[in-house]
Computed example of a mutant assay.
Amino acid sequence: MSQQFDSLIIGEVAQDTNVDYDGTTVRAVGGAVYYSGFAAANMGHRIAVLPKADTTKIDMAAAFADAPNVTVFPLHSATSFVTKNVYHTPDRERRTSTVDSVIEPYKTSEVPEIDAKIWHLAGLVGGDITDEMIPFAAEHAMVAIDVQTMLRCVENGGMVYHDWAAKKEMLPYIRFLKTDAAEAEILTGTSDRVAAAKMMYDWGAKEILITHNTEVLVYDGREIYTCPIRSRNMSGRTGRGDTTFAGYINERLTKDIPTALQTATALVSLKMETPGPFMGTRQDVENYIREFY
């Protein structure tokens, strides 16, 4: 069977309320699948999404209607992921997240036959995507995972982080592993991003991407690559990591690491200058690279 999609993104659509440091409040559809899907599709990649939510309350096809090259395979859950993010500082690096409800976990039995080169596991909290989904995904495609879906846990309505108990068992299945700097420290115990990347590689992940507010880092077991963030403002901070990761892994299908990394970093730098998902084009990103890189 010929490859139909560049990537299949598995993760719930969220009902987000975002409160900025100055009190500005925005209610919107969100979630890693949403920001990732728009970013990859607007760069010209063929994307399938498997979003999960209460379909009586969220029209998931409508949520992705403005994204080119996205095919939606909606899954129903009795409950949706409903959250509120309060940002405390202008750089939006500190936030408090509260969660009113979460989805029913994804099951391997409900994933339809979808032909994709990459399966991108993009849940939002622990339990969304169970450990068993990882070897199942590896039977079908290269596996990419944003580790937030294994570390973030809902406790008493709040969001807390715990280490991933099965990390050493599961990382060997993973082709692309994404963490942010804080998550990398939780997984490895070190705040040194280079050391953390090397540790996660030693545990089995093939290509590690770590985001930071100053740069994006990639390690492939041989060399450390970095590329600086160039955003002129941070008004579109929400969805930063999702945009970076989706941009990177889809570019890696045809590009080497330095090229894919620069494209993904420029993509997220440009995206962060405007709230919402990335709505530009590949040409916009190429122009941004010429101007700022």
Rank of each mutant, 00 (worst) to 15 (best):
G123C: 11
D128C: 07
A181H: 15
G236F: 07
A78R: 14
G247F: 01
Y248V: 07
T190F: 00
D66I: 05
N18F: 11
P105I: 01
L151E: 11
N250S: 06
T71D: 09
A205D: 00
T274A: 05
E183L: 10
E12T: 13
G31P: 03
N287I: 03
F5H: 02
R92F: 09
R232I: 13
R222Y: 15
T83M: 15
T130N: 13
T214D: 15
L121Y: 09
N250I: 07
V13H: 08
V99E: 02
R152M: 02
L217C: 09
Y201E: 09
S269Y: 02
D16E: 11
A67Q: 06
L177V: 06
E12M: 12
H88S: 11
M159C: 11
G31M: 04
Y34P: 07
I186A: 00
S101M: 08
A266Q: 04
A260Q: 07
G236N: 05
H45W: 12
M133H: 12
Q283G: 06
S269Q: 03
G123E: 10
T226C: 09
P51W: 05
K178A: 04
V49H: 09
A65I: 07
A53I: 06
M279K: 15
G44T: 01
S97N: 12
M279D: 12
V72Q: 04
L124Y: 10
T79W: 10
D6P: 02
M200I: 06
F73S: 03
G276M: 05
K178W: 06
V26K: 13
A197Q: 01
I174N: 00
E223L: 13
M159Y: 08
K206E: 11
D100N: 14
V49G: 04
Y173I: 08
F38I: 10
T244G: 05
V26S: 11
T263S: 08
S231P: 12
A181P: 13
P51R: 04
T254H: 12
M142W: 11
I134W: 05
P51H: 01
L8I: 00
G23K: 07
P112S: 06
E110G: 06
T211M: 09
T259C: 00
N250H: 07
E139W: 03
T17G: 01
E93G: 12
F5R: 00
A246N: 03
S97A: 13
M142Q: 14
V49L: 07
D192R: 04
L209D: 10
K255D: 06
A122T: 07
S2R: 14
P135H: 03
S109E: 15
E183D: 09
A266V: 02
G44P: 03
R175L: 05
D115G: 12
Q283L: 07
P275K: 07
M200R: 07
